[in-house]
Write a protein that binds this DNA or RNA. Sequence first.
DNA 1: CTATTATCCATAAAATTTACGGTTTTTCGG
DNA 2: CCGAAAAACCGTAAATTTTATGGATAATAG
Lengths: 154, 154
Amino acid sequence: MKNGLDETDMGILRLLQKNAELTNKEIAVQLHKAVATIHDRVRRLKEDGYIKRVVAILDRKLIDRSLIAFSHVLLSDHTAETLHNFETEVAKFPEVMECFQMTGQFDFILRIATSDMETYHDFYRNKLARLPNITTVQSFFVLSETKSDTAYPL
Amino acid sequence: MKNGLDETDMGILRLLQKNAELTNKEIAVQLHKAVATIHDRVRRLKEDGYIKRVVAILDRKLIDRSLIAFSHVLLSDHTAETLHNFETEVAKFPEVMECFQMTGQFDFILRIATSDMETYHDFYRNKLARLPNITTVQSFFVLSETKSDTAYPL
DNA sequence: CTATTATCCATAAAATTTACGGTTTTTCGG
DNA sequence: CCGAAAAACCGTAAATTTTATGGATAATAG
């Protein structure tokens, strides 16, 4: 197969997205293949970039990141320089977990993780709002996480 | 130590958040501890829930999830039943990666992953908009991912 | 039809995980 | 400050897993 995934590859990705601690043997049993086959496939899936990385997901409440905010940012202009400058500067803040440039009413959505509202406020006033060319920032706070999945259904 | 993390625990979490494929030996070298010590610590960090799970992160472009949308949902009322019904029903859609109940102007933010705009439109019309008690849905689309991190700085 | 390539797998070697036991360090009540 | 208890730490060895190898089988292409 030139460049596509067969049912075995899909099965591996399905399983490893949910639990990357499975051994090759456990995967092999579930997919009815030999251990060496699974090993080859997983190596290839990594080489080819399907699996970008394997990470530990922490309980954010236990490591003092109880507050998640989504911040909608509008910039004063959209020159390449302004956009690029904002992106690189905002990415440096450790509170910023994600930054997306968006279509529509605002230019960026940020996902911010802090310990509490006071810490967010400090971040907002002393870091985010001080970046150049910012027109408005609207902040929304997570009351509860109903669903939170890193695994794409395959 | 009763219930807190020392520098070794933090070091382990820092490393495993970035790359959970590190062996205990590799971690041990970096943190100047014995392999068995790291093994004990990691087991405890999992038992105590600090590490919720270990997962493979896929390249979504390669598995046909090129389009990410943030959908802001406003409900017609906020009775416990309406809220709960929306949460449980929306969580069933495979396109919905995340669902947060929010403070502020709208009630929920959803992160939706689909292959393209047409597929999103289909999801929107035939699934999301058909849920009961929905007043408005505003959709915003990701133009580019500037920063995307699952690891909290520790 | 044959050569080439890809898939699959059994096996064995290398490396890692895991269990065990004992030493050292820390904690804490008296 | 002392001594007991608990916790942290580590070396070793057994169990398991990963990784490399080579060969058999199936699919593909010329």
